[in-house]
Design a protein around this nucleic acid. Structure first.
Lengths: 236, 236
DNA sequence: ACCTGAACACCGTTCAAGT
DNA sequence: ACCTGAACACCGTTCAAGT
């Protein structure tokens, strides 16, 4: 009846099966119950078997993030950029609500993964297509911060320099070229920032600018609503 | 010469010394290098000695958060609420920049500590003194999210129901009374929300409202700047 | 090529015991 | 009252070995 008569020899593991099982386990047991060892147990395998498919736990978490980023719907073809961005972000929020462990894991990532870069690139593309300057788009992305993900968190914890998927590392110039073809909108707004400020010095200054930019947008918004006598009368 | 001639018997531990040493150690070695065991080693003491002064690691982290919240300056007596709030938040940001481990620890707290509640209460007080309604202030606090802390993070991960400092738990009504005298502004805006929505149902609905409120404030702000031809010409 | 077993260097926390 | 020592139930990850 069965094709194999020995002990329960499952279909051999591969990276995809590991990642999907990891997401399912995290969905069920949360971040506390999730470990390399519990995932291995889930797959009826010894912990070390996982290390043939992911380099370590960090890379496993990166892969899990990319799995759920893939669940975010593609950009809708809305007429105006504002509602297009709005729908995209609310779609990301729905994904995050389905995977409550994910926001914390995304926060803890130290450098962005390809799926994350694709997603950011596409959002930036909507802003640019709507006519916003690279400069304004740059600050808008920072101001949105983690809201782009469906939760609230600082964007770009580290400069977006992902390790190339290729075997041996490339020269910086070649890497930038590859980035520019794969994530043109990201490269554009990053370069726009460096062009504006003239050099790479003043990273702390830039951070401070982004923080105050978002803070003042919100405070100005509160003031405007206050003067208009705004209330949240009926919601939802 | 010394008052004690035996082996290096330090001044006995107490909660304050433990907390201050913990903050210093986290400042030096970051979140990864910080553990109950490394802290004990730092204090020349066996790990279990710490458990006479803090119940567990979570409570230790709570205490560390309160230590650095205490470093945030008091409210400045600015004329208008907007610059008063602005200065307070930028002061919190400076504290967080001095303690890079703190944002992650604050994010991971499961319920707010007294020092945190004092801080939030005082910010809300500034909004209210400026004439903003309890309703608008409530949504403003959510929209600011972790920016109130000097970083970007969702506020109120859990409803603000701290364990009473007293020995035996109190009835809910009495606890609310105590909250109301200690954190009057917090209680006011929490009650304002419940009054508006009529009941406690629809928590998810409320979360969705807060998320869209902040998102739309930002998107409207971007649109306004775009129409004005805003650029970040000279910064800092 | 893929998986295993034993081991290492860590965690937070318990319990019973020391002074 | 305050601290200790040994132990428990966990981690992520290494290495050398199995099939």
């Amino acid at each position: 009846m069965t094709r194999q008569s020995g002990p329960a020899r499952r279909t051999p593991l591969n990276r995809d099966r590991v990642l999907r099982a990891a997401v399912a386990l995290a969905d069920r047991s949360g971040n506390e119950g999730f470990s390399m060892r519990s995932l291995a147990h889930e797959l009826s395998v010894v912990p070390m078997a996982l290390y043939k498919h992911v380099a370590n736990k960090e890379q496993l978490l990166d892969g899990m993030v990319d799995v759920i980023v893939g669940e975010i719907g593609p950009p809708v073809g809305d007429a105006d950029w504002k509602s297009a961005i709005r729908h995209r972000i609310l779609s990301a929020r729905r994904v995050l609500l389905r995977h409550p462990w994910a926001s914390r894991v995304i926060e803890s990532r130290t450098s962005p993964t390809p799926g994350v870069l694709d997603y950011l690139n596409s959002i930036i593309g909507v802003f640019r297509a709507g006519g916003l300057s690279a400069d304004l788009t740059h600050h808008a992305m920072h101001a949105l911060g983690g809201r782009v993900w469906g939760f609230t968190q600082e964007l770009f914890p580290a400069p977006p320099v992902p390790a190339p998927a290729d075997a041996h590392p490339q020269a910086p110039a070649a890497m930038l070229g590859e980035m520019a073809t794969r994530y043109p909108h990201i490269v554009e707004i990053v370069l726009a920032r460096q062009h504006d400020s003239g050099s790479v010095v003043g990273q702390g200054c830039d951070d401070q600018f982004e923080f105050e930019f978002a803070l003042d947008l919100l405070l100005d918004g509160f003031e405007r609503l206050h003067r208009q006598g705004w209330t949240s009368a009926e919601r939802c």
